[in-house]
Design a protein around this nucleic acid. Structure first.
Lengths: 350, 350
DNA sequence: CTGAAAGCGCTTACAG
DNA sequence: CTGAAAGCGCTTACAG
């Protein structure tokens, strides 16, 4: 046996050693004012000598709380943490957790099942990101009476959510692209498979598509016509590269790539560079999110700026309110966004 | 009261409702073969109707385990998650956790205290990253008999660690810079204050500095002489920008920046660009880590390539071995690194 | 196959 | 100020 499995002293041992009761020992740590100074000193002294640390688990069971917030990992854990938009959200959540003295538990699927993961999660509340709003999960959260909030997800009955106006944002950036004179466009959507929403018409990729298409139609372009191509991929840099390759190889190569995600847009740009295609001269690219990397890449990316950190912050604050039994005033929190114009979109007309 | 605080059915309720004992209910979920099919069906049926989910906390207390690994956040949670090297490590750890059916708990300081955080952490083991190896934390981990592993930390007695040969890596990249003909150099070190190690001579910034200086001396340059400047900062993009500004404003501006961290190097490059200083023509910059962004930036960064993901993986695997009571064969795991030559280092001589 | 009972290590209302 | 005792919701060795 390793040293780790030696027995640790318990409250009982300290009670015995100090000559006081378990109650007194507990008070010594949690309510010093309820016992005499003498008792406290003696008890803390014993605790120190015997190396006693109250067991957090037992404490939590008595107190019926976990002191931790859970974050459901939308996809493979690798992809999740590789996406700066998501780590931004995590920053926001984490900061709020820290303020509340909570930890932040990242919850991967158990045997591939998200709802199994929720079933066993040792947390006081959950935050999900869009992709993982399958009904089974929601059912499990309700069963366990766990408060939850979703980010970038499908707003629905009893599912508090933090979003931006996806349709409008997508509409505006596509309009920018069209105003610049582009007529042949490829849209790179996010994989809808990961967004198992109850109402398919309300998930993020669908909403953004709606916005894109609206702008196209306004410009007299048929979204289903041959001026517009549609691609779909996961939200990773590698997938972005692959998309770049596909676009590069198209026989009727478009003049602009409109991506639902910066990281994918950046991947595409990297591939274009490697293939000798100049961005934006030969190919314009716009993204969505405005992750920090959007301003590292050359050319800097024109994109929709939204604050991932703030999304996380808002979601976490709402969750803590729910955990504390406060009524949530509104079920739907909407953040603002702006268009961040940079250099990756070429003006074909002026 | 909100709906969340309604009482959930317990094992007792299911026992009563089904007419079986608590033992039987427990078996129905955890050891189906130990009861009759009839009993199981009846019990699971009741559980379904009453909406029963076994309480993970109570289960964990009985089983004396948490099913979670803790990651101590080295700095402010924001800075941590904004550093791709660290999120890379987290990816590695997370993937191993997922395989073991564990969650990954991010542990921020409690009231500014790391050891208070460790004291109350609901985890089976801990992983720290260099910066947080103050003795108080180690004492607390020992007190709680929590297995732990450190990454990029100070290898020391009874502290399993995952590292690369920091001195050698730093030595090699500085030698590269010198071979390229640079004679006036600024070193940007990581903030040592965050690396509260027992043995100050062994922490990461010190080791890297040692390597840098060794190469300088070999080239006949006095590290303390006026050809070499030293700066120190936190590991963030903003700090990198600030460093860039300081370097830009130096009256005897050096020809090369040698940074202990890619993210800082990138920040500096961004500032140089904005100030009209061309990299690498007017200023060479090399980094350390090879984060993905190192190949986004223009020019792409020459740096030390080390696998952050693999660091996380190794650390987590070692930790699980310790948790399972296996002897750890070696206390010190060393990963390889390579020099990744790209375009940010200009050859002044050939 | 089944169940009564002890145990995990704490907290806390209650009585003294 | 102090402590005996019940309780948090599970697991499991043991006896039948």
């Amino acid at each position: 046996m390793s040293i780790y499995h030696d027995k640790r002293p318990t409250i009982k041992d300290i009670a015995a050693a100090s000559g006081y009761s378990k109650t007194a020992v507990s008070f010594a740590f949690n309510a010093p004012s309820r016992i005499s100074v003498e008792a406290r000193e003696k008890i803390l002294g014993c605790a120190l000598t015997l190396g006693y640390v109250p067991d957090p688990m037992a404490r939590n069971l008595s107190l019926k709380r976990y002191k931790s917030i859970g974050f459901l990992l939308p996809q493979v854990i690798g992809n999740t943490l590789r996406n700066p938009h998501i780590t931004g959200v995590l920053q926001g959540i984490g900061t709020v957790c820290q303020e509340h003295g909570y930890t932040l538990t990242l919850i991967p699927p158990v045997d591939g099942s998200m709802s199994e993961a929720v079933r066993g999660a040792a947390v006081d509340g959950l935050i999900t990101m869009g992709m993982s709003v399958e009904m089974k999960i929601v059912d499990m959260m309700k069963l366990r009476k766990l408060p939850y909030v979703t980010i970038d997800g499908t707003p629905s009955e009893g599912m508090p959510s933090v979003n931006i106006n996806e349709v409008e944002a997508a509409y505006l950036i596509m309009r920018e692209v069209l105003k610049a004179g582009h007529q042949s466009i490829v849209i790179i959507a996010l994989n809808k498979d990961s967004f198992e929403a109850a109402d398919k018409s309300m998930n993020v990729p669908t909403l953004r598509l709606k916005g894109y298409h609206k702008a196209l139609r306004e410009a007299g372009i048929d979204p289903q016509g041959e001026e517009v191509a549609h691609l779909v991929c996961d939200t990773t840099l590698e997938e972005g590269r692959r998309m770049g390759q596909i676009v590069y190889a198209m026989e009727r190569r478009p003049t602009a790539v409109v991506s639902m995600s910066d990281i994918v847009a950046i991947g595409a740009i990297l591939h274009f560079h490697e293939s000798g295609l100049l961005v934006p001269d030969d190919m314009s690219v716009v993204g969505f999110d405005d992750i920090p990397e959007a301003s590292f890449i050359t050319p800097r990316l024109t994109t929709i700026r939204q604050s991932s950190v703030e999304k996380g912050t808002l979601a976490a604050q709402a969750l803590f309110r729910a955990i504390n039994g406060e009524e949530i005033e509104s079920n739907r929190m909407e953040l603002s966004f702006t268009i961040q114009e940079r250099e990756s979109l070429k003006k074909l007309v002026s």
